[in-house]
Computed example of a mutant assay.
Amino acid sequence: MAPACSQPHVHYNVGGPMLNKVFQAACDGDLPIFKALVVMLDKGRGRPKEAIEALRVEDAGELEGFTALHAAAKGGGLDVCKYLVEELLVDVDVVDKKGRTPLFFAIHSKNVGTAKYLLNHGANQDKVSHDGLSLLHSAALSDNCPMVELLLAKGAYVDPVADCGTPLHFAASEGHYGTMKILLDYNADYNKMVNGETPLIAATCADSKSMECIMLLVKDEPMVKREIRTGGLVSLGMDSLRKKDYRLAAGFFSQALDLDPGDAILLSNRSLCWLQMGAGDKALRDANKCRKIRPDWPISCYRQGAALMLLKDYEGASGRFLDGLKLDPVNAEIEDALREAMKSLKTSRSSKAKQLFGCCREISGRL
């Protein structure tokens, strides 16, 4: 049986013929047909509310316990919603077998008008379904910005906690920038720790991680300073570096450097990121700053040499590696780099000499 009710054309097949007709009319918002069906259900007993409330989906998987008000909310049948809530006085927060209210389905189907109506007529904006998710969680997960804004404007609690975190955790883990911005504008707790993760950590660990979203979470200077003091940004940068996500690592190190531009280690780490991304000029710029701050640190010389190698300045690279080896004579890595630089310099000079010799022969031949 098909449990779908999606815009714009919906067809129900969730039970007997009468149930299907009632739910179809509710979903379509066809009030005359819906009222006529309610009269048929009531059979002249004068209890239409009881008749319609007794009509529920049974054994239909996802829609078990579904009611006519759920169908109207899901399909955007606003006129039917009004009739059920205002005339028949049906419970606006009636739940299905999974604890989902009609408002849940209005939000899920992006029926803003229906959602507003339900909220204006007493629907609980903080209702939690049996899986522990609030309405705001659902809206945030689907990046439904209008619904997120609507729920918060109606007083929904911005930081409800589910097993996987708050709505901000959900939005951050999916890279939903617009939803994150709204949640933060309503003072969502960007330091909220759930299962050992803050929204910032959720954003950096996401498959669809967005640097824009990450920067949104670290834009506040007092927060960034706290992150640095606890090793947060640096730790995240190093973790990204180990995962070879050099672009993300460079972003973290850049944020840290904005607050502490004199940190030679951060400059060295970012220089390495630029180097791995093939940005020789940026790598050299950071390496030069690093050496200026710590002229006696062999690593700063090594970073300079590596950047110059990328830029094919083998003579300059040899000089920097030699400086580093003088500071740390037993450093095998720098020694190997110096040997490679000198080999490249010799090859380069030999190639240039051959090119020059060839040019000279060509010119002599013309003469």
Rank of each mutant, 00 (worst) to 15 (best):
S344K: 11
G113N: 10
E58V: 13
H9Y: 07
L183F: 04
L63R: 13
G305L: 04
H176C: 10
F170I: 00
M211D: 06
V85W: 02
K181V: 05
V148A: 04
L55I: 05
P167W: 12
T166A: 14
S240L: 08
S254E: 09
K244P: 03
A71D: 05
R270W: 01
L118A: 09
K98I: 00
V14H: 02
R291W: 12
I201H: 04
D260N: 13
A156F: 04
S344Q: 14
E212M: 06
P222H: 02
S254W: 01
K289Q: 14
T114V: 15
F66K: 01
I334D: 04
D185P: 00
R229T: 09
I107D: 01
N144D: 06
G61R: 06
H130L: 11
A317K: 00
F252C: 07
R47C: 05
A4F: 11
C81Y: 01
L272G: 01
A115Y: 03
N20S: 03
A51C: 08
F34P: 09
G165Q: 05
R320H: 12
A26W: 06
S235A: 11
L356F: 03
G76Y: 07
P32Y: 08
S351C: 05
V57E: 13
E64T: 15
L241W: 04
D42W: 07
R303G: 03
K289V: 08
G358Y: 00
D79E: 15
Q304S: 12
A2D: 09
V80T: 10
M193H: 09
A73C: 02
A4N: 08
R294Q: 15
G122W: 04
M238Q: 12
D131T: 14
M18T: 14
G15V: 06
L200M: 08
Y157W: 05
R229K: 15
K326C: 11
G365P: 00
V194Y: 09
I299S: 04
I334P: 01
